[in-house]
């Protein structure tokens, strides 16, 4: 069972990372996209490009950029999604 974790709050990154298994993915959206500039993902890591651009930020290159089409596709690639609120 693989899980896509969706994180929108940068303050919860450590908590969320602690539960990630090696086959899980992490998608940064909304205010959490700032992490794509600062940190390296521990497993497959993705960032929602629209939210990155809206904040005038760039990824540090270690996160996969996804548009909304890619976001929908990711939710189907993993067995389930958990939004970390």
């Amino acid at each position: 069972m693989t899980t896509l974790y969706i994180l929108n709050n940068p303050d919860l990154f450590q908590q969320c990372s602690a539960v990630l298994d090696e086959n899980d993915g992490l998608l940064l959206i909304e205010n959490a996209v700032v992490l794509a500039q600062q940190l390296e993902p521990k497993t497959a890591g993705f960032v929602l490009e629209e939210d990155l651009v809206a904040r005038g930020l760039d990824s540090n290159g270690s996160w996969g950029n996804k548009d909304y089409d890619g976001f929908v596709a990711l939710t189907l690639e993993y067995d389930k999604t958990v939004s970390w609120l």
Partner: peptide, 14 residues
């Protein structure tokens, strides 16, 4: 918060 906007965009895309 942004969540309602994100949800609408996700809904339109799917």
């Amino acid at each position: 918060s942004q969540g309602q906007f994100s949800a609408i965009q996700f809904a339109k895309t799917l």
